[in-house]
Design a protein around this nucleic acid. Structure first.
Length: 461
RNA sequence: UCCACAAUAGCUCAAUGGCAGAGCAAUCGGCUGUUAACCGAUGGGUUCCUGGUUCGAGUCCAGGUUGUGGAGCCA
């Protein structure tokens, strides 16, 4: 039955003329074209029907006049429901009133209409909906304008990251998702049954990146990461995506140069390719246009001093409590937000206390209580988007650090090997895709930056 | 895990302890330039669950469930 239907459909497809993607509609003014897609919305004016049709590439307003169509076809047009799947054929024309078309200003005078399925009771209406309802219907919500625009920008951000890496001498080397031991000791791992043994889902590809760096010099991995943390905030996902570069013969200062150039390129690409999408999500573009080199670089010491000064100057007791900080503590999100708000570009904070950072970070010469680490904080309160460091390259120092942190040294045998066979100073960082998308799109929560968010209380759909 | 708040029609929300309501969506009708169109009509309810107080509970109380916002942890 299904097969028969599919065959009939294919025949229909092959008999249409000039099948176009809506995004290209400007090239077909005054020509007869066919568009296939889904009804986004319909306005019923009696003998006149305005049908917003989306095909994945854009949206076009189709106009059905009763006297320009066969009677049964107009009848169908006047009954079309939201998200019905249809094929229309008609002439493209310029129309100022077609404001909702993407690209705007074009419409199609419908001559022929075929309905593939008349949808019943589509749950997401053009009115307001709550978060829970929309997330329950995420498989349909991705069709909505705003979500569509965000996910398109996400794709460009990922492409920009990878293009920049590929164009700057980095090699993509994939790292495993199933791992025998923790990458970093602090956070919680998902464990899985590996033929009777326990294995873990990767939290980072970094340790493997360091091995790959020894083979290829400049490498990066790009993939999903899993953290079984019971975090419930606007910045946290259980499953999220990261790009992690690792560079041989690289200092912390050079690492910051790389991070900075990458951010500037990402923003440039989004601004160049997504004006319309940024308009759909009502992003303040002027904020993005400020993202240019150089970014401010402040030390952890300086950052703590700035925060303490802020606390001293504020009269708000709530702020005082929230922003209180002693040297040696890691920053919480209120601290990161407050620091980032002092700049209108991303800001680097370097030389964090070793105690709050991972075991593999290189201590600062003459000041072992701090390490050669750097976080990049995005503006507008989006917090940490990159975390990186210069890695410990000396065998004995690394071994001592592993023992000091009470980590199972036998699990790190291969990692220690890297310090035995031609060790070099090297550095790398990880950048969270979703936090980057949230910042660039100006979104209140990362759940809209990934097609199907995995959250503390959600794994459906 | 902790703190705060919420749960009523498919959706978004109202309802002083006293008849369960509106807008949108759906269905039917009207309209040749709509933009969340507009106008008229119709259908639509286990008020999250369990128990309690009361003549009477959507409303008050206790416990639970689910969700949202925030904290911690992190990218």
């Amino acid at each position: 039955m299904l097969r028969k239907f599919a065959l009939r459909l294919r025949k229909d497809i092959y008999t249409v003329t000039m099948l176009i993607a809506i995004k290209d509609i400007g090239n077909y003014v005054d020509q007869e074209v066919t568009v296939r897609g889904w009804v986004y919305d319909r306005t019923d004016k009696g003998r006149l029907q305005f049908i917003l049709l989306r095909d994945g590439s854009g949206i076009v307003q189709g106009v059905a006049f009763k006297k320009e169509m066969a009677e049964d076809q107009f009848e169908l047009a006047s009954k079309l429901t939201q998200e019905s799947s249809i094929i229309i054929t008609g002439t493209v024309r310029v129309a100022d009133q077609a404001k909702k078309s993407i690209p705007p200003g074009f419409e199609i005078g419908i001559k022929d209409l075929q309905v593939i399925q008349m949808t019943q009771d589509y749950p997401i209406t053009p009115k307001e909906h709550g978060v829970e309802f929309l997330m329950d219907n995420r498989h349909l919500w991705v069709r909505s304008n705003r979500q569509w625009a965000i996910l398109r920008i996400r794709a460009t951000i990922i492409k920009a990251m990878r293009d920049w890496m590929d164009n700057n001498g980095f090699l993509l080397v994939d790292t495993p998702i199933i791992t025998p031991a923790a990458g970093e000791e602090t956070t919680t791992l998902f464990n899985i049954d590996y033929f009777g043994e326990t294995a873990f889902l990767a939290q980072t590809g970094q340790l493997y990146n360091e091995a790959n760096m020894g083979a290829f010099g400049k490498v990066y991995c790009f993939g999903p990461t899993f953290r079984a943390e019971k975090s419930k905030t606007r910045r946290h996902l259980i499953e999220f995506w990261m790009i992690e570069p690792e560079i041989a013969f690289c200092s912390l200062e050079e690492l910051m140069d790389i991070e900075e150039a990458l951010q500037v390129y990402i923003v440039e690409q989004v601004l160049a390719k997504h004006r319309t999408d940024l308009e759909i999500i009502e992003r303040d573009i002027s904020k993005l246009e400020k993202i240019a080199s150089p970014f401010a670089r402040i030390s952890y010491d300086d950052a703590v001093a700035r925060l303490q000064k802020l606390v001293a100057e504020t009269d708000d007791p709530e702020q005082k409590e929230l922003l209180a900080i002693e040297w040696g503590s890691d920053f919480g999100s209120p601290h990161e937000t407050a620091l980032a708000e002092m700049f209108d570009k991303p800001v680097f904070v370097y030389h964090y206390p070793s105690a709050v950072k991972a075991f593999y970070m290189q201590p600062v010469e003459g000041r072992p209580e701090v390490c050669r680490s750097v976080d990049l904080l995005a503006p507008e309160g989006y917090g940490e988007i990159c975390g990186g460091s210069e890695r410990i390259s000396d065998y004995d120092t690394l071994l001592k650090k592993l023992e000091h942190d009470k980590l199972p040294v036998e699990n790190y045998a291969w990692y220690l090997d890297l310090r035995k066979y031609g060790t070099v100073p090297h550095a790398g960082f990880g950048q969270g895709i979703e936090r980057t998308v949230a910042w660039i799109c100006g979104l209140p929560h990362v759940r809209e930056t990934i097609p199907y968010a995995r959250l503390l209380n959600r794994k459906y759909p």
